[in-house]
Write a protein that binds this DNA or RNA. Structure first.
Length: 315
DNA sequence: TGCCAGGCGGGGT
DNA sequence: ACCCCGCATGGC
């Protein structure tokens, strides 16, 4: 097991960002325990930050020395410098997201590598929220890639090479027919046909087209990964679930719902899409519709897995 | 116990 | 451009 050494200590000036919310949302228990999170800054040559909800952090790397560029990367992946003023302004009185935005204004999306963002997306395909996150949990547990961070053993997502060399574990993880797509994504990265550092310079539209060349990656998965990996929000990942919700709330046809969403949220469309899943606790469609009818438009902790408390269940 | 769920591609029209 | 179907798996 690789041993990472501490290279930079510091304290994040969080401003209005709520690190508890930011670390908690869509996370696992082995990466967040309520007070301390591990944020993976590089999942190939492992670099991991240990961050407390108060903002104190230590960054660990293999060599034990690393450039201050990693501080920027940590703040970037926690959205510390992201100015959401316009997003709030657009959403403050929104019938769907207004309450969430007022109560959870400190939340920021926590970004991941493009590689892992695509796997997250594939696992959401044609499955319920909890089933998809269970698949991801199983994948991480089964491939069991670990590094030593100080005294703590920390799990890392498998690398593309791990998956190319052991495809069978994907089936054990319960991914079903998605295993082929995950394998295709892994091969693409292992063959260096995709480079996050090159893609980041392109427009969302061009990145989406590039990602859709992988068999099994469609518009939804491509866009979700663009949101998670690049913090580019201009193309929203809209699935059956959100499409139906938009058509009900804003009284537009299913066909027009994406246009309507983009007209309303503009360059924040992707962030608004993700925020909607948190606000409605990622409930299956019929329950989500009930929640909207009852005006329960902020997360509720009912001791069942939700995006916000997932870390308490999948440890 | 049969549905069916935050998609997708392939094959039809 | 559309529409429609099958698809692995696990939860209800």
């Amino acid at each position: 097991m690789d041993k990472l050494k501490p290279c930079i200590h510091g304290k994040i000036d969080t401003g209005e960002v709520d690190l508890y919310l930011t670390l908690a949302v869509y996370n696992f228990g082995f990466w967040f325990n309520g007070v301390r999170g591990f944020v993976i800054l590089d999942d190939m040559d492992p670099v991991v930050a240990e961050v407390s909800t108060s903002g104190d952090y230590t960054i660990y790397s293999l060599s034990g020395n690393c450039s201050s560029e990693y501080i920027n990367r940590l703040e970037w992946s926690l959205g510390i410098q992201e100015d959401l003023t316009m997003f709030y302004k657009l959403g403050m009185d929104d019938p769907l997201l207004g309450e969430f935005i007022r109560k959870y204004y400190g939340w920021r999306l926590r970004s991941t590598s493009l590689w892992w963002a695509l796997i997250i997306g594939v696992c959401q395909q044609n499955a319920s929220f909890i089933q998809g996150w269970r698949m991801l949990y199983n994948i991480i547990r089964l491939y069991n890639r670990k590094v030593l961070v100080g005294k703590a053993e920390v799990l890392l997502p498998p690398t593309p090479y791990d998956i190319v060399s052991n495809k069978a574990l994907l089936i054990n993880a319960g991914t079903g027919y998605r295993a082929n797509t995950i394998y295709n994504v892994a091969k693409t990265f292992a063959n260096k046909e995709l480079d996050q550092d090159v893609l980041v310079k392109s427009s969302s539209i061009d990145i989406e087209e590039e990602l859709k060349r992988i068999k099994g990656i469609g518009s939804y998965t491509a866009r979700l990964s663009i949101v998670l990996a690049f913090r580019k929000y201009d193309l929203p990942p809209i699935d059956r679930w959100l499409r139906k919700i938009i058509s009900l709330v804003y009284k537009v046809s299913l066909k027009d719902s994406e246009k309507m969403w983009m007209r309303k949220w503009g360059k924040w469309s992707g962030l608004a899409a993700l925020a909607t899943t948190i606000a409605l606790d990622a409930k299956p469609l019929s329950k989500a519709i009930e929640r909207i009818k009852n005006r329960q438009l902020a997360p509720i902790d009912e001791n069942k897995p939700t995006p916000l408390n997932l870390w308490k269940f999948l440890k």
